[in-house]
Design a protein around this nucleic acid. Structure first.
Lengths: 237, 237
DNA sequence: CAGTGGTCTAGACCACCCA
DNA sequence: GGGTGGTCTAGACCACTGT
């Protein structure tokens, strides 16, 4: 079955991607142009493009066109190195936008943390960029008693976990992580400027301190081609 | 844009999925049947099906049809609980097929473990099933000096990590994990009986013992809708 | 063999982005 | 307003699965 035309197309498109002259500014030629060049229809061409999108080689932005995807970002969700720090450490340019902050209950977070459903949280929702590409939409839910005055601080430019340690003396001892591939929900897709249903990666973290008091719960939605999760462990499993 | 017909179709199909009478044996009606029922073309209907596939709700098998996807398997790659054990613990039926074993060099594993490129490894390649659905194709590369006679043992039915501990007294102290979403390569797709380019999750692990001697490297390729990765951490990051 | 999904054609109109 | 991707139609033939 590897004689399907759209699969041979992906091979030729891969060559095209590695040719720096063919894609100026990392942008691919228009679908109609490519379809004509490869003597096929837009439907078949788009099948090939979708394949490369699944491989993480290209992505689309709104209705603007197809672009070559940059290298994945290495990300260790078990550490609290700030987003800004580790993005810069990889030679990339980070940016963060706070979309909203408020204080209200969130039953999902409450359940994960073992709290009553009407427990209010300090909620921060933000969108994060790497080299001006929005790659992550996330919400954080912090137990207010653990970090009084959190929302008045500068929670955007510094590592939140770092602040929890330094300002409130918390130790983030027990960390539980769940992650799986998903189709980005409508809201997150809109915030990231991609079509609903675009492939994504969902990461949820639940944090307790050394006395097993609930501290924080968060939900991250990443573009699937934007990151490579890494975890380093020392000690017995 | 949520007024696209294929998106409304996904809503109606989701209802259909939750109706146990509509899909006998977890199998969906034929595409032509569904297209007719929803008064659209196969192309549009398939767009809706692809959306649900991305959400992990349905999957296809060869050219046999579309099936409702079962619940995701919880999997903690940092632990050495055997596949058989944790699959059964979740009320599912595990099965493993060994596809091949041999001893030969593998530069990728050698590099990950910091060994010379011509370092030979004990190599085990296998395919694993949950409830008779092939969900994982993996290769393991063990440093022969750490586990002499490994390939003569019963490496299929017992936890490999458990054996490394009990038979060879190894402690798997330093574990490094890398994972990212991918399009399944041709070989793995064929072994899992799905189309090349189906969405998958790649997991790579590199293991050193307490003296930082290299022990093992493995590469896993999972169907993207088959699992939810979980990690539990205690102690300082 | 009949039925299934897999692939492909040759058009069309629409919604949105940018100059 | 021109160009882009997003969506959709109404067909067709092929390759494979199961009987």
């Amino acid at each position: 079955m590897s004689d399907a035309y759209y699969l041979r197309l992906t091979d030729r498109l891969r060559e095209l991607l590695s040719d720096p002259h063919a894609c100026e500014e990392g942008r691919l030629p228009a679908e109609r142009t490519l379809a004509e060049r490869f003597r096929t229809t837009r439907v078949t061409l788009r099948q090939a493009l979708a394949q490369l999108e699944g491989e993480g080689r290209i992505h689309r932005s709104n209705r603007r066109g197809w672009f070559v995807s940059p290298a994945r970002l290495d990300y260790d969700p078990t550490r609290d190195a700030g987003f800004n720090d580790y993005v810069r450490a990889q030679g990339r340019r980070p940016r963060t936008e706070v979309l909203l902050t408020d204080t209200r209950p969130y039953p999902t977070a409450a359940e994960a943390l073992g709290l009553p459903a009407d427990q209010p949280f300090c909620h921060i929702r933000r969108r994060r960029f790497v080299d001006d590409r929005a790659v992550l939409a996330e919400s954080l839910w912090v137990v207010p008693e653990r970090a009084p005055g959190l929302l008045e601080g500068d929670y955007a430019s510094h590592s939140l976990w770092g602040q929890l340690r330094s300002r409130w003396g918390l130790s983030l001892t027990h960390r539980s992580l769940r992650l799986y591939s998903e189709a980005l929900p409508e809201r997150e897709a809109a915030e990231l400027g991609v079509a609903a249903g675009t492939a994504g990666l969902s990461v949820r973290r639940t944090i307790f301190d050394e006395r097993r008091r609930p501290v924080e719960y968060d939900e991250e939605h990443w573009l699937h081609d934007a990151l490579c999760i890494t975890v380093e462990l020392d000690g017995k499993a």
